[in-house]
Nucleic acid binder design. Structure first.
Lengths: 245, 245
DNA sequence: GAAGCTCGCCTGTGGCTCCAACTTTGCCCG
DNA sequence: CGGGCAAAGTTGGAGCCACAGGCGAGCTTC
């Protein structure tokens, strides 16, 4: 079975086993390419490949000059998704709950709803909507991205604007507006970050992102929908599911 | 800028651009290693590396003999997490909603709660609990894993048992029992699958998993908690967040 | 004893080659 | 004219080598 398997897998599996069972604790040095070639009697290519795979899996990190080490377990900040966000976005509330200084900036502009967004807002394709792009930071470091689409009739302004940290949550803005948000729905999946996202979020290779599609509903109609990109190595999402009595 | 960048990145970026902007639609063939070496004037190593990176990102898939193609967009099955699961687990309900035949098997036994589980159940470490392991299948193929921990006073039996597809959801079992579940909480994060998980779920390399920690509460006390492992390439989790009027 | 520098180790990148296994295609022969 | 087979093309695995540049241990020098 494991006989005809590729050679590099033998190395990967052995090292992985040692990492997950704690023989190699977080921070411990991983044998170098040369050491692997000797220890496992494999070529340099296989050694390199094995290290790449483990790095790709997020189990080890390599630094030029000082070798590979077992990745330290990141502490995942909770993001409480079930709390209705007021006065600010969930992100700002999470950061405050976690004792970090939240800051963010945004840019709004008029745009045409691409097919998927149009569907989520129950509009026809390429209808005009207001698009707002956010970059959220915690203690100055970029931590989440979001792109929000609002129906034009609810947006305050149709001309491009931008700002920092003073935009309020959709829920409270709508409330001030006379529109009561009655439900929020979120759909969560995992994906590989796009290059611009890796860039903006300063993601190490191998880290995937949680993609949250969030829609605000008022009276059975969607009024706003957003795509939120959350680094998988920094956050966990916490939901409460009420059970009606 | 892009001048001193590694050569293979030029290839990756060009192909990626063509894929994301639709020049190369899903299913379209990607140039072979030899074609890449010629077209971009790079060595074969760089060409191969570029293809590996794109495959790793999930944008293309390679098949021995017939080349690489742009990956078809996988359809992610929705998993409706907010619905209170009766009479069966969320998984079974999702499969039915998606028109697939659900099946599962489980094994229960007495175990000692490891620190993290003990904390989630508000017990002291290594307290006796009932541990139940599930493998969930859709149309016969393994799709989700779960490990559940129940307080002994609520479990029906303390001796090891196993079964197939007849175990009811915690909510309905507790109800039959006189204990009303009042809330369910879930915490979602992403992680790399452990080898046994990759094995059981038959995951391709590079696919990460959604790890859901789910806890059932009755009268402000946790009565059951489970770890659910969900392949990131097969499911998206859907939550509804009620906004109280 | 402390400060600074040198040299060796390690990673990341990249080039070249060979081989096994598999797919596709097109040609040849019946 | 059609079916089957062989050749060409492709991926994935594997080996070897080279080189730039970061990092750090340890030696040298002040």
């Amino acid at each position: 079975m494991a006989n005809s398997d590729p050679v590099y897998l033998r190395v990967v599996e052995d090292l992985r086993r040692q990492i997950v069972d704690g023989t190699l604790p977080p921070g411990a040095p991983i044998p170098s390419r040369h050491q692997i070639t000797r220890k496992y009697s494999v070529g340099e290519t296989a050694a390199r490949h094995a290290l790449r795979v483990l790095a790709q899996e997020g189990l080890i990190v390599g630094r030029v000059g000082s070798g590979h080490r077992v990745r330290e377990k990141p502490t995942l900040l909770p993001s409480y998704r079930s709390r209705v966000p007021e006065p600010h976005t969930p992100f700002a509330m999470d950061m405050q709950a976690n004792g970090r200084q939240p800051s963010w900036n945004w840019r709004s502009e008029l745009a045409e709803a691409p097919p998927e967004i149009a569907q989520r807002l129950q509009l026809s394709q390429w209808s005009p909507v207001i698009r707002i792009r956010f970059v959220f930071r915690g203690d100055g470091k970029p931590m989440q991205l979001a792109t929000s689409y609002e129906l034009i009739e609810f947006g305050q302004s149709q001309s491009p604007e931008e700002g920092t940290a003073e935009r309020r949550s959709t829920v409270s803005r709508m409330a001030a507006n006379g529109t009561k948000i009655t439900e929020i729905s979120e759909s969560v999946h995992v994906r590989v970050p796009q290059p611009t996202e890796s860039d903006l979020l300063e993601l190490p290779t191998g880290v995937q992102v949680l993609h949250v599609e969030r829609t605000h509903w008022a009276a059975e109609r969607p009024v706003e929908t957003s795509d939120i990109v959350i680094p998988g190595d920094k956050f966990r999402l916490v939901y409460g599911i009420p059970v009606s009595l």
